[in-house]
């Protein structure tokens, strides 16, 4: 008798991680907030005019880097409908698309900022919240739960609370905060992730922007599936932001929305936000299988990626 090796499996015991289609780079051509909208059409025109040379440079440099020159580049644009709502998709989207075209830019994907908080039945921000792993100060040996200020995340040890009087009545002296991975001196960053005023969770702009970067990098999964999938555009745009899909594909032939790397061309007023984004992203544990999938695909294509997620992000502040 030949021994037979039985194979047995149970579906409920399996973990299936779908892979996302990926471009080489996702170029963000800008954010639009209420204040930009109120500043009039020139603000938008100026943003696109400044973004265009950087976008075409990025495209060209990827074409040179990718074997055969077939770089997959997609562009996107983010509209705030989370912190304030203004205009309507029917009015605004055609204007944005035309203004971009005037500067020689094509917007492949348009996303609503609230999609980072909630997209259909999924809450991408909560997926990220559960994956935060706090940067540990020296001496963290696991014996106590990570010290945490609810709704805040930092890159080091906070300064003791000023004015706290310890036992024996001695007021504690001020001590500086410290960055965990400092080189000589600290750059201590403390980021507010959300507040729960009035019993309702409001995510901070940096936290949603971190979710936005993770979506663009194709790093999030909800039960193994990408939480937000771009939808094709209809012939017209709705009158209410809530009726617009979280991410729409404006150009049917566009390269995939998510990409190995991201480039964000932003006004320099977003610099502090992006520092906060990088502080958050440095503490997000992306699923090891998702990371592995992306790495092996990029290697198969001959485009090795940086190990660290934050090193796959680049910026132009104009």
């Amino acid at each position: 008798m030949t021994p037979v090796n039985a194979t047995f499996g149970e579906v409920a015991a399996e973990r299936r991680i779908a892979s996302s289609p990926l471009s080489h780079v996702s170029i963000e051509l800008g954010h639009l907030y209420m204040e930009d909208f109120e500043a009039g059409p020139d603000r938008l025109r100026q943003q696109f005019r400044r973004a265009e040379p950087w976008a075409s440079t990025a495209r060209r440099s990827w074409q040179e880097r990718v074997p055969g020159g077939r770089a997959r580049v997609s562009t996107c644009f983010l509209i705030d409908d989370y912190f304030s709502r203004f205009s309507t998709p029917a009015e605004l989207i055609p204007v944005i698309v035309e203004t971009a075209a005037d500067s020689g830019l094509t917007i492949d994907y348009l996303a609503r900022e609230s999609a980072c908080a909630r997209a259909g039945g999924v809450e991408p921000a909560k997926l990220v919240e559960d994956r935060l792993v706090a940067d540990p100060p020296v001496g963290t040996n696991g014996s106590r739960p990570p010290a945490r200020e609810t709704g805040w995340l930092c890159n080091g040890t906070r300064s003791p609370v000023a004015g706290v009087v310890q036992a024996m009545g001695v007021a504690q002296k001020w001590r500086p905060p410290a960055q965990n991975a400092k080189r000589g001196h600290s750059v201590f960053v403390d980021v507010e992730l959300w507040n729960d005023d009035d019993g309702e969770r409001t995510w901070s702009c940096p936290f949603l922007a971190a979710v936005w970067q993770l979506l663009r990098l194709g790093m999030l999964r909800d039960d193994g599936r990408p939480p937000v999938v771009p939808q094709p555009r209809g012939t017209t745009f709705p009158d209410d932001w809530a009726d617009l899909p979280p991410i729409i594909r404006l150009v049917p032939s566009a390269a995939p929305f998510a990409a190995y790397t991201t480039l964000s061309v932003l006004s320099s007023r977003f610099m502090p936000v992006e520092l906060a984004v990088r502080t958050i992203l440095s503490q997000v544990a992306v699923d090891a299988e998702v990371l592995g999938q992306v790495v092996s695909r990029s290697e198969d294509e001959g485009v090795p990626l940086e190990d660290e997620l934050v090193d796959r992000l680049s910026y132009v502040f104009t």
Binding site: F8, V122, E129, D130, R131, R221, D222, G224
Partner: peptide, 13 residues
Amino acid sequence: ALVRGERVRVFRR
């Protein structure tokens, strides 16, 4: 269910 969006794997045999 310690991580939202992540499946608890269940084996019965």
